[in-house]
């Protein structure tokens, strides 16, 4: 809250500055032309980025008959939310949503907990063989056996068609460990740990009472990016869950629906194991609207956490930069 206030204040100051100095900053005609072009370009690109989401949304809440005729282009008509209610009656989809939420929560929680603990442990100089073990973990960022050996390994471990495949392999995330380690070393004074040690705290107590609360900012960053990653991941479901449709993630389910024919009956046989309930059949829900609505259901959680993510962008971009 304080942060947004400060930002607002800064913006206000900036505006005032320009208002005051407007007479001094003379705009040449060339400057004006540049500004017009610049604003237009950015305006257009922003529209291109955001309009598809809007289009998708208005089509899911409009009257299905109008949608079918392609008459909804810019404004919703006949607003209703029936599609969302009906879509939840599709059993497979409901289960996929559950699986996806479960993996997102479990996977993220385990990853964050492990990154925090490992990140802390590798800052402890007195550990036996510390630098070797740290390198042992970090170097895995730079090599990768490839998709087939990975698949064979997972099936060798019995993690095919198994929910655990979504959460366990992601527990140790080297880059997040580096982030936490750097944060602890740079932002949490050693004196705090020393004092706690003098007071008789064990390593784990120091971790829970000192490190964990103080490294919340970095943990929030890795949590939110980790959660989006979990929500979006699709390959593991596609490759590992080949004979367990009940464990398909939402992304995988959406992929199947998008590729199925727009014909509803074909859609049902292609995408579902248990079929769509009769009430859905009776309704005017058609293939196109099903696809749009599932897409929307998949996007909405991302859009919900997005505002909270924004303030972690600076750290997050580092995440992307080093991983890439």
């Amino acid at each position: 809250m304080a942060k947004t206030k400060q930002e607002k204040l800064e913006a206000k100051l900036e505006r005032e500055y320009y208002r005051k100095h407007r007479s001094q900053i003379k705009k040449t005609p060339a400057d004006r032309v540049f500004d017009v072009i610049n604003y237009t370009m950015f305006g257009c690109f922003t529209l291109i980025c955001i309009f598809p989401f809007y289009y998708l949304f208005i089509n899911t809440i409009s009257d299905n008959k109008l949608v079918q005729k392609g008459l909804i282009s810019f404004f919703p008509r006949g607003i209703n939310f029936d599609n969302y209610i009906r879509i939840l009656q599709v059993n497979d989809l409901f289960r996929s949503i559950g699986v996806t939420f479960a993996r997102t929560f479990l996977g993220t929680a385990m990853m964050v907990g492990a990154s925090a603990l490992v990140g802390y442990l590798v800052t402890r100089q007195e550990m036996w063989g510390r630098s070797i073990w740290y390198r042992f973990i970090v170097v895995t960022m730079y090599f990768n056996a490839g998709i087939i050996p990975w698949f064979l390994n997972m099936s060798m471990l019995g993690l095919t068609n198994n929910f655990l495949a979504y959460v366990i392999p992601g527990i140790v995330a080297p880059y997040n460990i580096i982030l936490v380690k750097t944060y602890i070393e740079s932002s949490i004074p050693m004196e705090l740990q020393e004092t706690a040690k003098l007071d008789g705290a064990t390593s784990l107590q120091i971790f829970f009472k000192v490190i964990w609360p103080l490294s919340k900012p970095i943990l929030a960053t890795i949590a939110i990016f980790g959660a989006v990653g979990q929500w979006n991941s699709f390959q593991d479901s596609l490759i590992l869950m080949q004979s367990a449709p009940e464990l398909y993630t939402l992304q995988h389910r959406l992929y199947i629906y998008l590729n199925a024919s727009s014909n509803l009956s074909a859609l049902m046989s292609a995408g579902s194991t248990s079929g769509i309930s009769q009430s859905v059949l009776d309704s005017a829900l058609n293939g196109k609207v099903i696809k749009y609505t599932i897409s929307m259901v998949t996007i909405i959680p991302i859009l919900c956490v997005y505002p909270f993510m924004q303030r972690y962008f600076e750290k997050g971009i580092m995440l992307g930069a080093v991983k890439g």
Binding site: N59, W231, I299, I302, F313
Partner: peptide, 20 residues
């Protein structure tokens, strides 16, 4: 708004492509 697309998966990008 230009950052949002980065956070959706490729499947969703395809869904967007599909609806347009």
């Amino acid at each position: 708004f230009t950052t949002i697309p980065n956070f959706i998966s490729w499947v969703l990008v395809f869904a967007i492509a599909f609806c347009i």
